[in-house]
């Protein structure tokens, strides 16, 4: 602890370079780095992401072409380490390529929903009163639908296709994110430092920019990260129903669907896409858990 009164007499130079504490995000990173579980989860995600990004160079074979002579080979077959699917295509290559579409469908809707939902929720939370009621009741109407049903209904209405699937998933994730944003903003709004900022004559927009965003985006982001897993599963579900990615393009959900019939012949091969979905979603969940505890300021 520092003796404050005695420093008052210290010689002063207002332009002297001050001792700067490490920034907030740097300290979050430092705490996160000590969290073994979160770092492992992050490593797994990084690995799968780089597989997807570098698929053309990494994948050993063409994911779209196979031969019927080699269909449904077990794991460990020569030339097909992870076996082949029902059309004789190399599973390893399809899993690597499939990561591209699956990650895209898992992450993109959440990113869009993060921005839109945060904007809606923060507006409602900071404005309060009647504006809050109007916005949040509207959001609640969408929130009332089960997310699977809403995604399927929207996709069905918009028509099949990747773009429409992304759009409908975005719409599905806006309400929950908006609700979280609204609740953290409302809680923050009654803090004394917001009152103090108002007392200094700052406009609502300035207060939101300087004092609100920095404090609420973190928690909202953590929540959004945990939605990525849900988004991947929903996206797989849409593909499964034929509303998302079309065959023959590889996507984990779609692969799971088509291999479903082969479950008695090659159960391990059929389970592979499901394992990938599981690995990615649990990694996102663990990472967001770690992030949440790393973001708590008070030690």
């Amino acid at each position: 602890m520092v003796d404050a009164t005695q420093t008052a007499t210290a010689p002063l130079d207002p332009v002297a370079a001050p001792v700067r504490s490490e920034g907030y995000w740097r300290s979050v990173w430092r705490r996160l780095r000590r969290d073994k579980v979160a770092m492992t989860a992050g490593g797994v995600l990084l690995f799968i992401l780089s597989l997807a990004v570098f698929a053309p160079w990494i994948a050993p074979q063409d994911p779209l072409h196979g031969t019927m002579l080699m269909r449904l080979r077990p794991i460990g077959t020569e030339g097909h380490i992870l076996g082949t699917d029902e059309l004789g295509r190399d599973m390893l290559s399809r899993l690597i390529w499939g990561g591209r579409l699956s990650l895209l469908m898992g992450v993109t809707p959440v990113i869009f929903a993060f921005f839109i939902g945060s904007a809606i929720g923060i507006t409602a939370g900071y404005a309060g009163g009647i504006v809050n009621t109007l916005i949040m009741r509207t959001v609640d109407v969408f929130y009332a639908f089960p997310s699977v049903l809403l995604a399927v209904a929207l996709s069905g209405a918009l028509g099949a296709g990747l773009g429409n699937a992304l759009l409908s998933l975005t719409v599905v994730f806006i309400p929950p994110i908006a609700r979280v944003a609204e609740s953290v903003t409302t809680r923050l709004r009654s803090s004394d430092f917001i009152e103090a900022a108002r007392a200094s004559g700052a406009s609502a927009l300035t207060i939101v920019r300087v004092h609100v965003l920095g404090n609420v985006l973190g928690p909202i982001f953590v929540y959004a990260t945990s939605l990525i897993a849900v988004s991947m599963i929903l996206a797989s579900g849409l593909s499964f129903l034929g509303l998302g990615v079309r065959p023959p393009n590889p996507e984990w959900g779609l692969m799971l669907n088509t291999l479903r019939t082969a479950i008695y012949v090659q159960p391990w091969v059929a389970a592979l896409p499901g394992m990938m979905i599981f690995a990615v979603s649990i990694s996102f969940n663990l990472l967001s858990d770690g992030l949440r505890s790393a973001m708590e300021v008070r030690a």
Partner: peptide
């Protein structure tokens, strides 16, 4: 009359 400083850590 004050006690200078703050309680120790």
């Amino acid at each position: 009359d004050t006690i200078p400083g703050a309680p120790p850590d």
